[in-house]
């Protein structure tokens, strides 16, 4: 049984079809990377999974819990969100809480775990990303890369069944992208299910079990990295990959 299953997800925004009947199935432990030009609906799709932007119709299944987008109850949504974690493009750390509190907040408030236990878990995670010494700092005192690593720790702390990554590196300065991708690779190796929206082709090629190419609110192509990135069948995928490749060529010059 797949860990995450989306069926016929449709969403209109401002009179435009952003998502046009998307079906997606993600197996347990899989790392799925969603590629696509901006405006293709990939971030919107990610946010329909945990109902930050609920779809107009279609069903979302996470870890056996199925919620109908058209008529969802807030209790179902809450239960579904508690099965998922999310890493945001702009980090999304609670600005009024320290690094440590950011990680323990979900554990103590939502999971009702004792404070000491939550802190122990938080420190374990911070150790892994080399940020234990920043536990008492506020988010604004950290670099973007550090903030994003804390964001990943916060998502991991809740031991969700799937983590959603919403362009986790696109707000970062180029020299900070590497440290975050490294952390993400480490997370992938732990066997947790991940759905990642990104422009990092190399990450997709190295880590993904499955690559999905989206454009115009539909999935154009999906398959292994080798199939989609190296041997795309669709004209649109090819054009997109070529444009990204040219961009990085420009960098080299």
């Amino acid at each position: 049984m797949p860990m995450v299953e989306l069926k016929q997800i449709k969403k209109r925004l401002g009179g435009e079809d952003v998502l046009n009947g998307v079906d997606l199935s993600v197996g347990e432990g899989d790392v799925v990377v969603i590629l696509g030009p901006s405006g293709s609906g990939k971030t919107t799709l990610l946010r329909t999974i945990n109902f930050l932007n609920p779809a107009d119709s279609g069903t979302v299944t996470v870890g056996g819990l199925t919620v109908d987008s058209a008529k969802h109850h807030h209790k179902e949504v809450l239960a579904l969100r508690r099965k998922t974690g999310m890493v945001f493009q702009n980090y999304g750390l609670f600005k009024n809480k320290t690094v440590l509190r950011n990680i323990t907040e979900g554990l103590t408030v939502v999971r009702k775990i004792k404070k000491e236990e939550a802190e122990k878990r938080a420190y374990e995670l911070l150790e892994k990303v080399n940020l234990a010494d920043k536990a008492g700092a506020y988010p604004a005192e950290l670099s973007g890369g550090q903030q994003q690593r804390v964001g990943i720790c916060r998502a991991l702390a809740l031991s969700p069944e799937v983590i959603l990554f919403d362009e986790p590196t696109s707000a970062l300065d180029p020299e900070l992208v590497g440290e975050v991708l490294k952390t993400m690779k480490a997370v992938a190796l732990t066997g947790i299910t991940m759905i990642v929206v990104t422009h990092e082709i190399s990450f997709a090629r190295e880590v993904a079990d499955k690559v999905v190419y989206m454009e115009g609110g539909v999935i154009v192509e999906e398959g292994t990295p080798r199939e989609v990135i190296d041997h795309p069948k669709d004209e649109r995928t090819l054009r997109f990959l070529r444009s990204i490749l040219e961009d990085s060529m420009d960098y080299m010059i």
Partner: peptide, 19 residues
């Protein structure tokens, strides 16, 4: 985005608002 982040760790609307 702060409220979204609160939702993402599983807080209710009330918890996100008051915490």
């Amino acid at each position: 985005g702060q409220l979204d982040a609160a939702y993402s760790v599983g807080m209710t609307a009330f918890q996100g608002m008051f915490r």
